[in-house]
């Protein structure tokens, strides 16, 4: 019995046997834009997914579409909830023209503000706290916004030479890690805006960053890149601890809530579960027919949601962290 299921947005027969649904989904979604980002709602009861078509909210775990809405920002690439769960930020823009972030109240989903001024699409957003967020853009800039009245652009971080595609905030709330097409992983002091260091071991553009949950020891950040590696860093001391090379390019990564494993959505449509200590793939699971661009791990379940080509959104069950024998499906 396969363990992944299909979003109801594009397939309208929930009980279809999976082997058939994969084939059907290809035909049914041939002109749908790809899902570019997914995130669980703060209560874990739904999934927010974004694409060129706008934003959709699907119930969890059946992935039935609850609502869809166009955004004032086209070509969405990212979505993130504020720490207090009261706001949702979605970012995108007109490629090579402008980029912005739309803020919505949650759970109402009502647009409340728009933060603009990037010269290219916004590729990543991260909340500093419930009133401040950072946006990273293909225009090579990272912008720090404060939504207190009046809204203001607090700081612009510049040093990336190409598109900034990923952001990651450390628990101290003042150290930011960024990465992107220029292959570098950069560490910033948000209090001063200074670039602390740049780490350059990746040999292709970096697609995503993710902070390992848990306390104790130096913070660890994982980076996924076009060189097919996931690298594990201790950014506060500038050390690359170890890396694992996958069989396919990781496009997006997300840690399990206990920090024991990291899940990667890959360009071959599969997800791979990686043990960060042994740096080996413990599970490989089919997910998307095409490229998988986005993954989110449910905070309390052994399940992930994966988004990708042709508007596909899938649910995949992974093994519990203590049962991590290598398996390929």
């Amino acid at each position: 019995m396969q363990r992944h299921e299909v979003c109801s947005r594009y397939l309208f027969a929930p009980s279809i046997v999976l082997g058939l649904t994969v084939a059907l989904s290809v035909a049914a979604t041939a002109t749908e834009p790809p899902i570019t980002a997914v995130t669980f709602t703060p209560d874990g009861q739904a999934v927010v997914a974004v694409s060129q078509a706008g934003m959709q909210v699907c119930s969890w775990p059946d992935l039935k579409r609850q609502r869809t809405s166009k955004a004032s920002v086209p070509n969405l690439h990212c979505a993130a909830f504020s720490p207090d769960g009261q706001h949702l930020a979605i970012g995108g823009g007109y490629p090579a023209e402008d980029g912005s972030v739309e803020l919505r109240s949650w759970p109402a989903g009502t647009p409340t503000a728009k933060l603009g001024d990037h010269d290219d699409s916004v590729r990543a957003v991260v909340w500093l706290d419930s009133s401040r967020l950072l946006s990273a853009s293909a225009d090579r800039q990272i912008r720090l916004w404060d939504m207190k009245t009046p809204r203001e652009l607090v700081r612009v971080l510049q040093s990336h030479s190409r598109s900034v595609d990923a952001l990651c905030l450390l628990e101290d709330g003042k150290t930011l890690v960024s990465a992107g097409v220029d292959q570098s992983v950069r560490v910033w002091d948000l209090e001063t805006g200074a670039l602390v260091r740049s780490m350059n071991q990746h040999t292709q553009g970096v697609h995503d960053l993710a902070l390992r949950p848990g306390e104790g020891g130096l913070p660890m950040v994982a980076s996924a890149a076009g060189d097919r590696t996931i690298r594990f860093w201790q950014p506060t001391i500038g050390r690359m601890v170890r890396y694992v090379r996958l069989d396919a390019m990781p496009m997006d990564i997300a840690w399990r809530s206990d920090g024991s494993q990291i899940v990667a959505a890959c360009a071959d449509g599969r997800i791979r579960v990686v043990d960060p200590e042994e740096v080996k793939v413990t599970e490989t699971l089919d997910a998307i027919d095409g490229w998988a661009y986005a993954v989110a791990v449910h905070p309390h379940q052994n399940r992930v949601v994966v988004g990708g080509s042709d508007g596909q959104l899938k649910k995949v069950t992974i093994r519990s962290a203590g049962n991590a024998d290598i398996s390929v499906r």
Partner: peptide
């Protein structure tokens, strides 16, 4: 079509494709 999260192609608005 695939790289950069498909940003070079806009299936719903072809003339808006990069």
């Amino acid at each position: 079509v695939r790289q950069r999260q498909g940003r070079r192609i806009h299936l719903l608005d072809p003339a808006g494709s990069l």
